[in-house]
Write a protein that binds this DNA or RNA. Sequence first.
DNA 1: CTTGTTTGATATGATCTATAACAATTATCA
DNA 2: TGATAATTGTTATAGATCATATCAAACAAG
Lengths: 170, 170
Amino acid sequence: MTVSKTAAVNAAKALRKEPADPAVDNDALLMGELSDHLGYALKRAQLKIFEDFLRCVAPLQLTPAQFSVLLLLDKNPGRNQTEIANTLGILRPNFVAMLDGLESRELCVRVRSTNDRRSHILMLTDKGRAVLARAKKLVATKHEARLNELLGSANRAALLSMLAKIAVEF
Amino acid sequence: MTVSKTAAVNAAKALRKEPADPAVDNDALLMGELSDHLGYALKRAQLKIFEDFLRCVAPLQLTPAQFSVLLLLDKNPGRNQTEIANTLGILRPNFVAMLDGLESRELCVRVRSTNDRRSHILMLTDKGRAVLARAKKLVATKHEARLNELLGSANRAALLSMLAKIAVEF
DNA sequence: CTTGTTTGATATGATCTATAACAATTATCA
DNA sequence: TGATAATTGTTATAGATCATATCAAACAAG
C-alpha cells in the first residue's frame, strides 16, 4: 500500500475524472479492482484522517498516539506503563521514549509504586489535563465535526461501529 | 496511535467487557472517549486487515503494497515508474527498491522507452500475471470473503464507499 | 547552444515497529 | 527460608516505512 502524504495530492489529481472537454487528463491511470479492496481504501482513509488530526491539533503539538495516551491516562489514573502500553497496542520498549517526551513536557509523571517498586504509576499533571481538555475541544470542533459534515452523523456512527467490529472480531 | 500487531491481542483482551461473574477481569482499562474517535478505530482496523491480507497471500509472498503495484501494472501497461508511483502515493525514490524486488523475482520488467529514453516502461511478465491471478483468487476467496462474512455484503459496500469518500474528499 | 525540466537513481535522515537482553524487584514453591 | 522463575522499566538494535536533497542522463524551450 504505502501511501505517502505529500504525494497523495498527485494521486488525487490522477484519481479524479474530468469531463471529456478541452484540457482533459485522459492519461489518468485506471485504478481497476484496487478500488474494491478494503485494505487500500482503509489505508488511504487512515492517512487522510491522521493528516487532518495533526493539522487540527497542531497548536498543541500532539500526535494521535500521544493524544490516545493522554486520554487513557485521564480515564485510568494509577496504572503502570505496561498496562497503558498494552491497552494501546504499543510495545513497552517503544513506550519509554514516548513517555520521556510527554514527561519532559510536564504533561504526565512517572511515580514509583509503593506496592510494586518495579513499576511506574502514570498520572496526568494539571498541565497534562489542561492540554488534554484543549485537545479534546479542537478534535471535537474541528476534526470530528468535519467528518460528521462529510459523512453525516448516522453514517459516521455506522462507519465507527464497523471499524470497531473489524478491529475486535476480525 | 501506534498499534503493534503482537500486542493487539492483549489490547483486544482488555477491550472486551465480560459479565460481572467469577473470573472477571475487572482490572480492564477504560477506553473512554477513545472508542469514539474515528482515527483510532481506523488505525486498528487497518492493521488487522493488513495482517490478514499478509496471512492470506503468504504463499505468494506479497505485501499489500506489492499487490497494489501488480494490479496497477496489469490495468495500465506501458506506464513509467513516476506514473505508477504517483498513482499509488509512493514517492519515486522509495519506488526504486520496491521495483528492484519485483523485477528480481521476475514479476515485472523495466524497459527503456523509445520515445523518452529517460523513462522506464513497466510491464508485468507472464510470471507476474500468473502470480497476480493467484493473489487475486486468494484475496477474494480468503481475505475479502471473510470480511463479507463478518460485515455482510451491503455493510461492506457501505464501508468501502465511506472510506473512499474520506480518502478523496476529506 | 544554453537554460530549465523531467526521469530514474542514490544517499541519507527521520520515524515507526519489533526483538533480545539486562538490572531491579517480585512471585513461586520446594 | 532460599533457589528459581517471572515481571517491570529500560537499553540497544535491527528492520521497515516515509521523506528530502541531489545527481547524471535525457528531453524541452528559447
